[in-house]
């Protein structure tokens, strides 16, 4: 399989080097695979950080910037960053008000973050809070975790927590909002193809020309169900209905949505999915307040998408509308 890489071992390092070169507001923490705001730590503000395996770009470092994240640590492809690097990143983002970590629910990520938090508390007396995001409605138990996985709904947690911190909220308040977003969000994904990791160089699972995988995560792991390929509308219905069944929203509820590309899907197709999604939501009496379409949390070169729905209230609308400027997401005033 052809790849635009040099050595598989060097991909993460070289990606980060290129990323920092492209975005002057980002800075690499020397000797680590972690990236922070160039001006980190921001005094008088809770630092918001994230992290996880690589291969999900623009997640995670792509959401660093004013109004969202202060730092993000990158692990190897689909592998958690180590606790010592996470701890160093956490400490580098502490501007005196503590640091809040957004963690996706995978065993490796959760254990390394928990260990990193202990290290930061022990070494630097840093106050640290965290949320474990588990928005994937597809499974209770997946290949990588006990319980639901953390997937594209995490973007909303980054956004809301980042806005809270920018407005001067403390750790407790930020944790409350992060938990609220996690409670109100659901995601379900599908794969038309597997993905190819740089290390392995071949698809991580076999999927026939006429097959799709439903209920996938973001690590190229198989989903919960394999079916014959369907039309975009049928796939959209399937994903959206699974999410809505989980959220149990009342008619008249306002929502924000993400049609997220898995890395190898043309934007054209994502818009086709969004068209059906919005029609379906309207059909159910739900009001879309904001709809995003694009590659937000990818799985290397996988073709496919996920659908995320977030139930809104006034507070969450305000936080999602709050200005942010990052490589992966920009929200401007008004």
């Amino acid at each position: 399989m052809k790849k635009l890489i040099n050595e598989p071992d060097a991909v993460v390092d070289e990606m980060l080097e290129g990323m920092v070169a492209a975005h002057p507001n980002l800075r690499r923490l020397e000797g680590t695979e972690a990236v922070v705001r160039a001006d980190a730590p921001v005094e008088g503000k809770v630092g918001i950080v994230s992290g996880g395996g690589s291969g999900h770009e623009p997640t995670h470092a792509g959401y660093i910037g004013d109004g969202m994240l202060d730092g993000a640590a990158a692990g190897e492809v689909f592998t958690s960053p180590t606790a010592d690097q996470l701890s160093e990143m956490i400490q580098a983002c502490d501007g005196g008000e503590g640091v809040f970590c957004v963690v996706k629910n995978y065993e490796g990520d959760v254990m390394n973050f928990e260990t990193a938090i202990e290290m930061a508390e022990m070494e630097a007396d840093t106050d640290v809070g965290y949320v474990v995001v588990d928005d994937d409605v597809a499974v209770e138990d997946s290949l990588y975790t006990s319980g639901r996985r953390g997937v594209a709904g995490t973007i909303f947690v980054h956004k809301a927590a980042g806005a809270m911190a920018h407005r001067g909220a403390d750790l407790t308040e930020i944790e409350r909002v992060a938990e609220k977003v996690n409670d109100c969000v659901g995601t379900m994904g599908t794969a038309l193809t597997s993905c190819v990791t740089p290390e392995k160089g071949e698809p991580t699972f076999d999927l026939g020309e006429d097959e799709i995988e439903l209920g996938i995560g973001i690590h190229g792991e198989p989903g919960t169900e394999r079916t014959e390929v369907m039309s975009a509308d049928e796939i959209t219905d399937h994903l959206a209905e699974a999410v809505l069944e989980d959220l149990e929203l009342e008619s008249g509820t306002e929502v924000a949505t993400i049609v997220n590309g898995m890395g190898g899907t043309p934007l054209m197709e994502l818009y086709v999915v969004n068209r059906r999604l919005q029609a379906l939501l309207e059909d159910r009496g739900l009001e879309t307040w904001n709809a995003r379409v694009g590659d937000y949390m990818t799985s290397l070169d996988m073709m496919g998408c996920s659908i995320t729905v977030l139930e809104l209230d006034d507070e969450l609308k305000e936080l999602l509308a709050y200005p942010a400027e990052t490589p992966g997401l920009t929200v401007t005033e008004g």
Binding site: T79, T82, A83, E107, M111, N112, E114, T115, E118
Partner: peptide, 22 residues
């Protein structure tokens, strides 16, 4: 413990190393 946390990786790093640290 710290060495194991930073070099073993995955879940085993925190399990073998983090527990030793604590």
């Amino acid at each position: 413990g710290v060495a194991l946390v930073s070099e073993v990786g995955g879940a085993a790093g925190p399990l073998y190393g983090g527990s030793l640290m604590k």
